[in-house]
Amino acid sequence: MERPEHPLRPQRLETLTQEAVELGILSLSGSEDGFGIWDHTDSAEAMLFNIGTLRHLGQANPGVAFSWHRSSLAHGLAKLLGFTLNQERFLATTLSITGHYGLGRYSLARWLKGSAIPPEEQDVLGDWLNRQQHASPIVAAEDWQTLLWPQWSDGEVVWCLSDRAGESVSRCEAQHGFDELSSYLVQAHEHGDIRSLDASQTRSIYQRMLKADCIGLMAIAVGALQRGQTLATEYAAIRKQGGKRIDHHPAVQFMLGEVEMTLQHAEAALGMTTRPLDELDLGVLLSMRARLHESLCQAANHVVQVHGGIGYMRDCGAEKIVRDLNMLKLQGGGTREIPLFLAAWVEK
């Protein structure tokens, strides 16, 4: 974060990741039971560790935090499903939990609840997870090799480990944020290595993955805004306008106050998630995500605005926080369709 205008190079990210694996912050799928991110989700303490670690990482670098979060979920899921992953490079495997666009509208919620799904909604769900027909966007470390993702196969959701070399993968231009990572459009040729479980097991795992992803994205985002708050308050304390510090002007005080309010709300929301993952309701988490990301993005914009012109410049660091928070909002299907999901989730 010292020079935000110079993104972390892929080699540096690999080295850092290797160090994090050695420190036990990240666990490979082949390792014994460890204490890395998302290794445990069955107690409040474990969740506190997952959330706290991702928040701290988000404070330092949201792009790095995102890649570690997604690869941690991938390694955990691979272990559960018996997939064999590259044990030399943690970031060689990444995960995409949602379909090619959005959040599956209301069909995903109905399927997760085990409700009867009318044929047209089944078509939406099947199409949403049709990896052969649609290219899905993913954001990952440059040299990823395998992708773990759900697919639709013969009327069921299955888990698939796709090899990059065997799929149609096109690298995109530099994306909006997460300067340390790259974007790709991935379209499957084959079904790849597949694990098919019974429907209730698949639904249960899918829910757990969605919940963990949702919490992870929120935790990283809160960390990113905390960094933004530090930048804004420190700058406002030294910058003068009209002969006095800008944090003595109500125009700036309001923006700093909004940032603080957003963080307080976010803290309270994240605090509610420090319970065993299975006790948390997916609908509640998605509701939080929809509101939280909206307000976090707005607050990050206040951070830039407090800085004025310099906030727009890359060497300041504030504009990167806005871009990274936008990225976090747009991942995992984005937030626009969450109300549709929730309407189906609470449907009688």
Partner: peptide, 30 residues
């Protein structure tokens, strides 16, 4: 921002052009 939200994961891709528009419009408020 509404355009970005509509495109969801696709919104962050430079090829869709909206992410650049966000970066551009941000300056007009400053």
């Amino acid at each position: 921002e509404m355009a970005l939200d509509l495109l969801a994961d696709h919104g962050s891709l430079h090829e869709q052009r909206i992410e650049k528009i966000f970066r551009d419009v941000r300056l007009t408020r400053i």
